[in-house]
Write a protein that binds this DNA or RNA. Structure first.
Lengths: 228, 228, 228, 228
DNA sequence: AATGAATGAGCCTTCATTCAT
DNA sequence: GATGAATGAAGGCTCATTCAT
């Protein structure tokens, strides 16, 4: 005699702009901010929804789940970042030295530039600390190409006698000097407070290039002497 | 699809006999393991209690709160580490080059060695990502001395004409190459899978020393040339 | 451990061309399947809509609510069933015994046959467990006529001395033996696994008829002996 | 600099009697009522907790999950019911006829008795309609023994010539007549309103016994005639 | 001193329904 | 006439904490 659980009617409140696609975009933007600020686990879907002026259920409607939303955020941010900071073509640099300087500057900019798109480095940092299923794809799409290009420049600088292991280690040495300022930022700030405006980034990349060029030249000499 | 974040691993119950102080110690040990494995937020007090063979309430009874327990863990680990690894005297090395090699080897070992002492680097890494009230003290007590020592070695290698900023950046370049293998481990493993046994650590530190010595010598030449 | 209740099975989309009335029909058909498979409460309107190749909102648009749709399904199924299976005339059987056999066979077929027409018994079963507003009408239209016919056969077999209560109880005894294989199917399958093809149904109804004829003859003797 | 998400302190309210075991018992009792009234899916753990005067979390603390609680309820209820309505020892009946009457009465009482322990039949009914992982165990523990005993009585009544299939079908015929009044209650009430006090149960079981004894005797005659 | 039991807040997700188009 | 998008209300469960003993 009963047909239970009739759902009550619910009034409506169009929170976002009104555009059909606006909610999805607002959710993505809010999610990016929250995920960057708190990490995946600590991020609260309610916070994301509120920031976006949308209902919590909208997240599941548009993306399926918190996790899917996270992956979408990562994908979007990575591709956006790549577009904004494209890898310089090494063929356009007159010398390998210039190519190294250009690549390092771009890499450092990618990592430290604190504009609205500075999210990727932070997300990357989080992923490295607490890797999720999204990391492998991220490495493939974002890191590996960059690494390969740097590797090519390093190969040119080390000369024909360099073996693969040496090339790789030297490339790691280059990359590490750049990433350091991202990962160890609190440490750096404690030991030597500094900002990362364009000038600072330029000075830093100049140092790293100078330091590394010296190192690579020395390596080349060592290799050629050992070979002789 | 799931995004499995790390779970506290195995239920390795450290059964407590009944000693009054034993529970406290067991809790600290268990907490260290869990905090390292999962980070502060993801760590579950219930896991810590179970590992320690104690009641959940014991944590709050002994330490007041999860947060207080965390800070206590950090403090203990840091001071223990300092006691166990007193900084070697750079004066004991015949040459600055040898001192650099020795310092780098020790630093890399500390960061990568996966024994029980490996907790501090991991906790440090977590703190750098999500700094808590414990970080400043940790930097002061653990990082800064090490950094000062490396800095002294760098100063010796760069010669009397090096300014403070250059010394600092070069020291960062050194430290960064070592920390890289800790922070970017998932990345390194994806690009070039490797283990970190003693031999590997030795090879790595040899590379970093060689690379950096070349760089520092080049820097010194630049400085002296510029000055002349 | 999971307790998996049935899920609506397969996404067998009944794609709707675009006809105005086609959507309504598709929804009814899909709803019937889903309600039968999952019951009213567990049925999900989204599943129904997907199966029908229609929008979720179409359900409320066409029927007003999930509940109204359910009632409509019940009404349709019952009347369809009545049309398709007009009650056979008992006068067409040579003897009351033959009439009983015929009636039992038909009843059992209706209950156990697993074709599309098998929906009514299952819906009836669900209604008996959790009666809704639709049950009384269902009993009136579907059950009662059948019951009255069986009752007439029983009356013929029990003879003129049978009182109303005895007739009713004996009819219940007949009906119960048939319904048992529907209601207690999981139980029967556990105790004695079996299928319900035409042959099996025939053997079952033969048993029930034989068993019941013996019982009714004995009843008749008792009645006549008591009366004498 | 932050250690986020400090949990707020919470006041206490000892709702139940106060005994340590009381909450668990209260939860079980409340859960039984709610599961019987609504079924597993529709039952709400909040309702259960409120009825028991306990916190929602207490359910998970004591039983692990809603599902585990359900299984526990089923187990408890079944064993309680079995204790209260023990199967009569057929050896204590003077004749097989008396044994049949006794067994049927007990079975019908178990199914229809509407005391506080009338939950099992309802839960059984729900399980038959929407079987869960708990059904097989329920059949094994509650149904099968009863069925075997009835089967023995039937065997005695059918004589030595009865084959296994016949014995089984006849036993089903017996059981079905009893279960009918449980399953088809709404139907029975519509066709012939009645109550199920002790007298009514006695009259019903008398009818079923009489009906079935006649049937079994007829079956026996058939068997012996066919054999001769 | 130490614990088993209990708590309230909060989380992610699901669902029937409704609104604007 | 029909739909995609959005909504509020639960729902089951987890967690750090606290109370009574």
């Amino acid at each position: 005699m009963k047909l239970p659980r009739r759902r009550p009617a619910s009034p409506k409140k169009t929170a976002v702009g009104g555009s059909p696609e606006a909610t999805r975009a607002a959710l993505l933007q809010a999610a990016t901010a929250v995920f960057v600020a708190s990490g995946y686990e600590q991020a609260r879907v309610r916070d994301i929804a509120e920031r976006a002026g949308a209902n919590v259920a909208a997240i599941n409607y548009h993306f399926g789940s918190k996790e899917a939303l996270y992956l979408e955020v990562l994908r979007r941010q990575a591709s956006e970042r790549i577009e904004r900071y494209p890898l310089p073509d090494p063929a356009q640099s007159a010398t390998p030295e210039a190519a190294l300087q250009a690549a390092l500057t771009m890499l450092l900019s990618r990592l430290l530039a604190d504009d609205q798109r500075g999210f990727v480095p932070k997300l990357l940092m989080r992923e490295l600390l607490a890797p999720s299923a999204a990391l492998p794809a991220m490495v493939q799409d974002v890191i590996a190409p960059q690494f390969r290009q740097l590797s090519a420049v390093v190969t040119a600088l080390l000369g024909p006698r360099a073996d693969a292991a040496t090339i790789q280690r030297c490339t790691f040495s280059l990359v590490s000097q750049c990433m350091f300022y991202l990962f160890a930022r609190p440490l750096v700030q404690t030991l030597a407070p500094q900002t990362y405006d364009d000038g600072a980034v330029a000075r830093l990349s100049a140092h790293i290039a100078q330091f590394s060029l010296g190192a690579l030249r020395a390596q080349r000499e060592l290799l050629e002497r050992a070979d002789a």
